[in-house]
Write a protein that binds this DNA or RNA. Structure first.
Lengths: 190, 190
DNA sequence: GTCTATAGGGGGATAGAC
DNA sequence: GTCTATCCCCCTATAGAC
């Protein structure tokens, strides 16, 4: 049961949380309705179909990320600090009831979710990669990061590893997640 | 529709394939029955509950992995070759209809699958990590692998990254998966 | 081992009252 | 915007015939 100021926003919050907790095929309108303290049909008023709801969650996340990285609080950080900020997003997910990242959650179920959702996930994943690549590139130029190969590939590896590490932590515990993040940092010192 | 010699084995094959394709919550007894060309109830005869079926799939995979790594064809390889063999497992999954690894699939849905399954996944993940750690350790001693930090942490990072990369490839394409594997190899040369 | 039949539940979604 | 009521489908699972 959750307080309501803005139903639509609260629904999105709950849906996002459930997506990261149980996956797209693991949650239902009933779950959201129960926590919100309303009936099933009320959710359908705001989001006619489950696909609509899923897409709205991802879209909001994309907007949020875009705002973050364009905000001076992040934009003006050093590459080192940017990377730490990035890792902290995932660390916070792990701390928040062992959530995994939206992208990983939906890609694992990719072939059993609506196509409109797939496209949204693709867009988000590209944006995350692009920012990370730019950050690694910048850091290598200024000499704080050292690594072989292309920044784009290194970005793909790091993003994949935190995505995988959040999942791994569910079976093997939070320490394993932290180990992966530490190793990823070590692998930038070379 | 699939030929039947051994129903139980065929069911396990289909279930494993569906798990890697659609996830635990994304497939049903009906899917298997249809492909096998039998009725729903026939599957329940072999595997009373869906949890039983899921556990059997993971157990078989664990046995298979154990056999592989103890077989002289793998056991006697160099660390370099062992690692290549390991990556080839994942490359083959990607080639096979864009499957993801069982562990990643089930950890993404971890909080919406039966507890008995969770335990099985935990066991498998530990075994994969343990073997990879030993291989990295061996390779570092013989000088073919170079990396900072503990072999256990490096193993966790590499395993997480291929797990994540298979998922990433679903949204961004096979090239991205290959990029991650190549980067992982580069990161062992330092 | 596989079938038919069916129980029993949950899911997504809609219509119409308030 | 939220309610009640309802539809229809799919799902897991079981009983009993063959």
């Amino acid at each position: 049961m959750v307080k309501i100021e803005n139903s639509k926003r609260t629904i999105l919050n709950l849906a996002e949380s459930l997506l990261q907790d149980k996956g797209f095929n693991g949650f239902s309108y009933a779950h959201i309705a129960a926590e919100l303290g309303v009936k099933n049909a009320a959710i359908h008023y705001h989001f006619p179909s489950k696909e609509d709801l899923g897409r709205a969650v991802i879209q909001r996340y994309r907007d949020r990320f875009k705002l973050w990285i364009n905000n001076t609080r992040v934009k003006d950080l050093s590459p080192q600090e940017k990377l730490d900020w990035f890792f902290s997003i995932y660390t916070d997910m792990r701390s928040d009831k062992g959530k995994v990242c939206l992208v990983g959650s939906m890609e694992a179920e990719f072939n059993s979710i609506p196509e409109g959702l797939q496209a949204e996930v693709e867009g988000l994943h590209k944006e995350l990669l692009k920012w990370l690549e730019a950050t690694l590139s910048e850091g290598r130029e200024t000499g704080v990061f050292k690594f072989n190969g292309e920044p784009a590939n290194k970005a793909a590896l790091i993003l994949s590893s935190v995505q995988g590490a959040l999942q791994m932590a569910r079976a093997l515990g939070t320490k394993k997640f932290r180990d992966v993040v530490e190793q990823a940092k070590l692998d930038l010192l070379v």
